[in-house]
């Protein structure tokens, strides 16, 4: 599903942000990518979304070689990857329903399909009654659920979550993790980038640890590797 071969990314001057990374993630996996700030997690995400080009190496996602991809095809790659952010990134001037419908609108889904699909997604994340609420009327946990619904509404095979619990309290964090696990069970490949130790330790999933741009460990059922 996702293959990185000897991938490095060096910014204009200085040490590489990502250094010679080799990584393989299978279809249907649940993977944590952990590391401190500055470890190269954000760079890695940007490489996967083709917001950045690697200085060296080859990235293949869902059978698509990113290096050979024409600029015009980038939208099609991004439709394969649903993204969730720490700061939710919902549109503040639109209600919950319109926020999720927006994701379908931009990939030119017919209105008829949108009317059917949005309520279904809202039920899945447990917010069926709040479809008329605006983001500022929701709690952090609820906003993140809306963001997850938005990321998944177009049925991407991959869900990429960048610090999804970064702005949430432990209770809400746990709920979001359970939701992501549920989504994974339905067949979506889930990649969670985080430095939330408690969550990583509790979930007992594959954990890839990055330090200074290099993968230092990759464990099948791992926990957070503590500094030391």
């Amino acid at each position: 599903m996702i293959d990185l071969e000897n991938v490095s990314k060096t910014y204009a001057a200085g040490t590489p942000a990502v250094n010679n990374i080799n990584l393989h993630i299978d279809k249907g996996e649940f993977v944590f990518i952990v590391g401190d700030s500055g470890a190269g997690k954000s760079t890695l995400i940007k490489l996967l979304l083709k917001e950045l080009e690697p200085t060296e190496g080859k990235i293949v996602i869902n059978g698509k070689n990113l290096g050979r991809m024409r600029r015009k095809k980038i939208p099609m790659l991004r439709r394969d990857i649903g993204v969730v952010f720490q700061d939710f990134r919902l549109l503040k001037d639109r209600n919950v329903y319109d926020n999720i419908a927006f994701a379908q609108r931009v990939v030119e889904t017919p209105t008829k399909v949108i009317r059917r699909k949005v309520p279904a997604m809202l039920s899945m994340v447990g917010l069926a009654e709040k479809y008329k609420s605006f983001p500022k009327e929701l709690s952090g946990g609820e906003q993140q659920r809306v963001a997850i619904a938005r990321a998944l509404v177009n049925n991407p095979p991959i869900l990429l979550a960048d610090e999804p619990t970064g702005n949430l309290d432990p209770n809400n964090s746990w709920e979001i993790m359970k939701l992501l696990e549920e989504i994974n069970k339905r067949g979506t490949t889930v990649i969670v980038v985080t430095h939330n130790k408690e969550v990583v330790d509790a979930m007992q999933k594959r954990v890839i640890t990055i330090k200074k741009g290099v993968i230092v460990s990759d464990e099948r059922k791992g926990g957070y590797i503590y500094e030391g």
């Binding site: 015009k72 939208p75 099609m76 439709r79 994701a103 931009v106 990939v107």
Partner: peptide, 17 residues
Amino acid sequence: KEEIGIMKLMGAKDFFI
């Protein structure tokens, strides 16, 4: 700007944006 950024991440085509 923010909306356009989200649209790009969602896979909106250039023309649509």
